[in-house]
Structure formats: structure tokens, C-alpha cells
Design a binder for these strands. Structure first.
Length: 677
DNA sequence: TTAGGGTTAG
């Protein structure tokens, strides 16, 4: 064009650019931009930003990113384009790119608008980064009352969400209450956020209260909110309430989805209603809808747990015949089930059943390579040294599993060293003094790092099975550990950490569980340290493992203290944690404490299940407290929980105890009679 | 924006 001496106006360029982008010819569009650069034609910053937004909308994120950098360097980026770009990266789960854009934008001295702040607070919140979310909230407030940037309903919704995600549900509820008083009208999204937060942390009373309030305020609950509530109710073992909610859903015309039925089926299995769960599954199949690969996976898992491997394998064939993909998770479940059953040729057996042999083949090939590379692995030295050096104290353990300076220690008054924020003139217009207090705490804790994650560690991520990645490591760890083959698991663990593959908390938890089972407490300590160094978040399972370990070491007192600490932060105590600690206390002869914990568990809204009752009946029987054991047996039957095979052994023991007592009683009577004669 | 994996009892 230049050679021809024709001057192309910037308007022409714009028209051509527009046309190319609209028709998806992005390479051509970029060529046009290059040409423009060469001939020295400049678009207005506004035009560049529109091009950028168009690229984002067409999901050309790579191109958009490079163009964004150019714009930023030329000081021409505006808040609309940066917001669009950030939203796109968050939705695509591109955390690294998100952070880069976020940092670049600020580095160059640009300022976010309210929406920009909200997008960032929300995104960092989604990734469990409470620190950054609070930091941004501080910034927003510090702009002062005169600024156009100020926290709005979206800001608070996002903050409540992140508080829930890191297990600070008490704080989230406090902010939520203030918010309602502040003149903000909670919207559909607010209710959804707080209800889901409560459900995820098993605060079902709070969840239901807000669910009712939501309806009272004219918001119609949808399938997703109901699914969350259903799931929560089943997880706290409130079977009756869950069934009632499902009925209500049907009556109110809330559409039940496949997801709903999956929650129902799994919930019925978990609440000791295997027959009902299986019947529902069969009925749904007959109807030909509401069944997907996850449904099959749920039923297969539960069949494996009940040692019904053959039926599980039949279902694998059935699901394939219906066109559902058997995923890595299901295959792992089956392999573990087969190994536990002692079927050493299990992989071959599984091959026969899984039509899509590619995945099983991959798994087998991977294992062969792995095992070949691990020949000559040595046994781990037995190690019964205490898990916590220096006899272990609470602060030492807490510093490892919960390195969160946000939690004031017992000696530190809440936000005391920050001063009272309520009367700070700058904050007069703020709608949540409580939120301000939380946020101010991070100002004096710059190195704060959140390590507790409410979302559980993932075994299977999205990468697939082609490479030596953490998914395969987790899968194989599970299998080796299920076989009780700790030395192979250890070797595998060492090997992949040497290779620089980052474990996830699932991996660490699996390893620690096995170490605790074998009494290798020193190793547990080592793994915990490793987690800390890698800044890998602990989750509820990590806590449960620590409590189990402490119980085995005879330190039920410490275990108890950890639970108190967690309780203070607002809960997220699950039934496994309560059961584990009940068992530890019982075995340690602390029966009164165990009884108190049982009451605490119930008052916190978690119903006891078959495991809870088996533990209580057992520890009381073993302590010769026959009456109490009976009391719990009766309570269990009254709650509609049927005894299982574990209960049977315990009851046999209880019978003998009763016999013993009768004998003693009779002897005493006989002695008395003898004496009186 | 919700569901399945592992962690609890003998």
C-alpha cells in the first residue's frame, strides 16, 4: 500500500479491522495492525480497546493478552478492556494470566473502577486467596467517601464468598447480618452465596434459616440452591429433613435435575439406605432419564464398598453400552475394590469389562513403567517416634496445619493492635464495620498466607492420563496404599517429588493416612512440613488425619484442643472429624469428654451415624459401662439406624460384659444369703 | 453454580 503511494486513512483501517474480527480472521486483523504500525497510522486508544474487547469476546485470549501488553506500555489501556480481560481469564481458570494482567495494570499506575475491584476480589476469592481479596477491599475503602470507587453489594457478596471458602463461616455470617442492616438489599446472588457457604461447612441450621428468609423476601429458590441444601442435609445425616426438602422441591415445582438425583442416591447410600438408593437408581434407569456417568460412578463406588465387585463390573458394562465414558475415577475405585478383594489379576479382569480399553491400557502401561523404575525399593525403617517432637504442644501443631495470622491467638484481642475502626472518619460510610475489622488485620500481616481450603483436594484434574502427572501418581498411590504396600507408595512419593512434580493436598493426605495407620508418626511430621514449604493448603482430611494420629499417640487432649480451635473459627467440622475424635477420647478412657463431644456434635446440627454409635457403644462396653452402652444402642435404633456387621461384634462383646455383671451380681447375692444363714 | 473419590467404628 505504501509503495503505491496511497494513503490509507485510519477510518479505512478501522473498517477493515472490524470486518476481519467479526468474521474470525484474527491473523489477518493482526497483520492489519502491523501494517498500521509500519505506516505510522495510529488508532485512538478507544479504538484499540474496542479491538481488544472484540478479541476477548471471540475467545482469542492469547492475542488479546499480547495486545493488552502493548496497550499498557503505550499507557492506553482503559478499565473496560482490563475488566473484560480479567473476567475472561477467571472464567477460563487462567489464574497465572489473570495475575499477570492484574499486576501489570497496577504496575503501570492504572486504577481499577468499582467493577474492576469487584472482579478481582471475586476471582482471588474463587481461588481461596483471602489475603488479596481483603487487601483490595482495604484499597477500595481507603479511596475515601468522596471517591467513585466504593464497596457495593457485589463487593460484599464476593467477600462473603471468600470467607466461606476458607472456612471462616462465623465471620461470613457476621458480615452478612451487618449487610442486611446496612441498607443494601441482598439479591438472588447474595442468598445463593450465603446458603451455599453454610451448606459446604455443614451449618445447615443457618442455611435453612437463610433459605426461608430468601423465600420470604420473594426470591424463588432454583434447582442449584436446592441441590446444595439437599447435599448438606445428607452430609450432616439429616435423612428425614433431606427427604422432606426433596418433596417440597417437587411440590413447589422446582425442577429436579440429574444432579439432584445424584445427590439423592449418594445421600441415601451414605445414610444407610442402600436398598432405597439402589431402587431409585433402577427406577430412574427405567424412565430412561436423569442417569449419567456420575450416577453410575456413585452406585459403583458404593457397591465396591459393600464388596459387591461383580455387580459393580456388570454396571461398568451397562454404562458403556449406554454410551457413558468410564473415567479414571471410576477405574481407580474398581481397581481398589478388586485389590481389596484380593484379585491380583484385577487389571486384566477390568480390561475385559471396560470396552474403552485405552484408559485401562494407559493405566497398566504407566504402572509397568513405574514398577520397573522402582525395582530394588527398600523397606521404610519402622518408626514409632512421636509425631511431634518436644512432646508436642498445641501451638506447634497449629502453626503447621493452620498458619493463619488472621486468627487472633488466645492472648490477642481481636484486631486490638489496629485500633478501633468504627470511629475512623475514613470509614464512616462503610456498611460493614465487621468487614473493616477483618480487612484491617491484614494491614499488619503482610506475609499472611491462607492454608486451609474448604474445597477438597482433587485426585483427578483435567490433564488426562497420557503423561506422568499428579493424577496418575494419586491414582497409583491410592492403589498401593489400599494394598497396604507402603514401601512402594513411599518410593513413588519420593520419586515424583524428586522429579519436581508438585503434589496436591490429596497426595499428601493419602501418604499421611497410611503413615498414621502404621504408626510412622515421624514421617507424618515430615509430610506436614513438606506441605507447609510447598504452601499446599490443608483441608478437612488433613485435620482428620492429625486427630487420628494424635489419638493413636494417646494425645486425645491435643486432638480435642485442635477441634476447639477449629470450632472458634466457625466450624467446618464434619462427621468424620467428630467420629475420629470420639474414638480417640473413648480409647483414652475419657468417656465423660466423649459424651460431651457427642452432645456438642448434635447441638452443632450434625446427626450421629452408624459409625458414631458403633464407637460409643464400643467404648462404653469396653469400660464396663453397660447401661450407657445400652442407652446408645437404643438411641441408635430410635433414630432408625440399623446395626451393621461392626455393631454385631460390639454387641457380642457387650453380651459377655452383661453376663459377667449378672454373674457378679448373683455371686454377691449368693454370698449375702450364705452370710445370713 | 450444586453431585461421585479419601479420612471414622471391628
Amino acid at each position: 500500500m505504501k509503495e503505491d503511494g496511497i494513503v490509507v486513512s485510519s477510518m479505512t483501517f478501522k473498517v477493515i479491522l472490524d470486518a476481519f474480527i467479526r468474521s474470525g480472521k484474527f491473523d489477518w486483523a493482526l497483520e492489519v495492525l502491523d501494517d498500521m504500525e509500519q505506516v505510522g497510522t495510529k488508532l485512538s486508544p478507544y479504538m484499540y480497546n474496542s479491538v481488544l474487547v472484540a478479541l476477548i469476546r471471540k475467545n482469542q485470549l492469547g492475542l488479546a493478552l499480547s495486545m493488552f501488553y502493548k496497550l499498557v506500555e503505550a499507557s492506553g489501556a482503559d478499565s473496560i478492556c482490563v475488566n473484560e480481560l480479567l473476567v475472561a481469564f477467571r472464567k477460563a481458570g487462567m489464574r497465572l494470566e489473570f495475575k499477570r494482567v492484574f499486576e501489570k495494570f497496577r504496575e503501570k499506575g492504572f486504577e481499577f473502577d468499582t467493577r474492576g475491584y469487584n472482579i478481582c476480589i471475586h476471582a482471588f476469592g474463587c481461588w481461596g486467596d483471602l489475603h488479596t481479596s481483603l487487601m483490595l477491599y482495604n484499597e477500595m475503602r481507603d479511596r475515601g467517601p468522596g471517591s467513585a470507587v466504593k464497596p457495593d453489594l457485589c463487593t460484599y457478596n464476593s467477600l462473603i464468598r471468600v470467607l466461606c471458602a476458607v472456612g471462616k463461616v462465623n465471620d461470613a455470617l457476621a458480615v452478612w447480618e451487618e449487610l442486611k442492616e446496612s441498607g443494601h438489599e441482598p439479591d438472588d446472588f447474595s442468598y445463593r452465596t450465603i446458603i451455599q457457604g453454610c451448606c459446604k461447612s455443614y451449618r445447615m441450621d443457618d442455611a435453612i434459616r437463610n433459605f426461608n428468609e430468601m423465600q420470604y423476601n420473594g426470591f424463588r429458590p432454583d434447582t442449584v440452591v436446592c441441590n446444595s441444601l439437599l447435599d448438606g442435609l445428607f452430609k450432616v445425616r439429616k435423612l428425614k429433613e433431606a427427604c422432606e426438602l426433596f418433596e417440597k422441591m417437587v411440590n413447589d415445582g422446582v425442577r429436579a435435575s440429574c444432579w439432584t438425583y445424584n445427590v439423592l442416591i449418594d445421600g441415601l447410600f451414605k445414610n444407610g439406605r442402600a436398598v432405597a438408593a439402589y431402587t431409585l437408581f433402577c427406577d430412574l434407569k427405567k424412565k430412561g432419564q436423569y442417569v449419567d456417568a456420575i450416577t453410575y460412578s456413585i452406585v459403583i463406588l458404593n457397591l465396591c464398598r459393600e464388596d459387591q465387585i461383580d455387580r459393580a463390573l456388570e454396571l461398568v458394562e451397562e454404562m458403556e453400552a449406554r454410551g457413558f465414558v468410564v473415567d479414571l475415577l471410576t477405574i481407580t475405585t474398581l481397581l481398589i475394590g478388586l485389590y481389596k478383594q484380593g484379585s491380583w489379576n484385577s487389571s486384566e479382569r477390568l480390561m475385559k469389562h471396560v470396552r474403552n480399553g485405552n484408559m485401562v491400557l494407559n493405566v497398566l502401561r504407566w504402572r509397568a513403567e513405574m514398577e520397573a523404575s522402582m525395582r530394588g525399593s527398600q523397606d521404610k525403617r519402622k518408626d514409632f517416634t512421636p509425631m511431634f517432637p518436644s512432646k508436642g504442644n498445641l501451638s506447634e501443631i497449629m502453626s503447621l496445619i493452620n498458619r493463619s495470622p488472621l486468627d487472633p491467638g488466645p492472648d490477642r484481642e481481636f484486631a486490638s493492635d489496629v485500633g478501633e475502626t468504627k470511629h475512623d472518619e475514613k470509614n464512616l460510610w462503610s456498611t460493614s464495620p465487621y468487614m473493616d475489622q477483618l480487612a484491617n488485620q491484614i494491614k499488619c500481616n503482610n506475609h499472611f498466607h491462607q492454608t486451609f481450603s474448604v474445597s477438597r483436594g482433587q485426585r483427578v484434574q483435567e490433564k488426562g492420563v497420557e503423561s506422568f502427572d499428579i493424577d496418575m501418581v494419586n491414582t497409583y498411590l491410592s492403589i498401593f496404599l489400599a494394598k497396604g504396600n507402603l514401601s512402594v507408595a513411599c518410593k513413588l512419593f519420593e520419586k515424583f517429588t524428586d522429579m519436581g512434580i508438585d503434589p496436591v493436598n490429596y497426595t499428601y493426605n493419602s501418604m499421611m493416612t497410611s503413615f498414621v495407620k502404621k504408626g510412622y508418626f515421624n514421617e507424618v511430621w515430615g509430610v506436614l512440613h513438606m506441605m507447609g514449604e510447598k504452601l499446599c493448603p490443608t483441608d478437612i482430611a488433613t485435620y482428620n488425619i492429625i486427630i487420628q494420629g494424635l489419638g493413636k499417640m494417646g494425645r486425645a487432649d491435643l486432638a480435642s484442643a485442635i477441634l476447639d480451635q477449629l470450632n472458634k473459627q466457625g466450624g467446618y467440622l464434619d462427621i468424620v472429624m467428630y467420629n475420629t475424635l470420639l474414638n480417640a477420647l473413648g480409647k483414652d478412657g475419657r468417656l465423660e469428654e466423649a459424651n460431651r463431644l457427642f452432645e456438642q456434635m448434635r447441638s452443632s446440627g450434625i446427626n450421629p451415624d452408624i459409625v458414631t454409635f458403633n464407637i460409643l457403644i464400643q467404648v462404653h462396653s469396653k469400660a464396663g459401662r453397660v447401661k450407657e452402652a445400652y442407652k446408645f444402642l437404643k438411641m441408635m435404633l430410635d433414630a432408625g439406624i440399623s446395626p451393621n456387621y461392626v455393631t454385631d461384634t460390639t454387641l457380642d462383646f457387650l453380651d459377655k460384659e452383661i453376663e459377667k455383671l449378672r454373674y457378679e451380681k448373683a455371686s454377691i447375692k449368693l454370698n449375702n444369703i450364705d452370710g445370713s444363714i
